[in-house]
Amino acid sequence: MSVDLATVRHIAHLARISISDEDAKNMEGDLNSILEWVEQLSEVDTDGVEPMTSVVHMEMKKRDDVVSDGGYAEKIVHNAPAYEETFFMVPKVIE
């Protein structure tokens, strides 16, 4: 499988990264050489093999379903590029 320029642009949009024509062209070459290289996995017989979900066999611990953290919204927002009181500020999304 290989990607063309239109696919590179589509993926970049899905990933929300704007990309110049020149960068898209370079990326097309890079991505294709990486994809061609990972293609060797197709020679591995994986019939009946379960996909890995966790490297460590363990029972996931559960905690009581109670509030254990929070109550400091002002600390959360102060790293934002734009905020007012305890709200993140973003460009208008609804007319």
Binding site: L41, S42, T46, P51, M52
Partner: peptide, 8 residues
Amino acid sequence: KAQKVRTL
């Protein structure tokens, strides 16, 4: 496919 190879 990769996660299956990872199991192997």
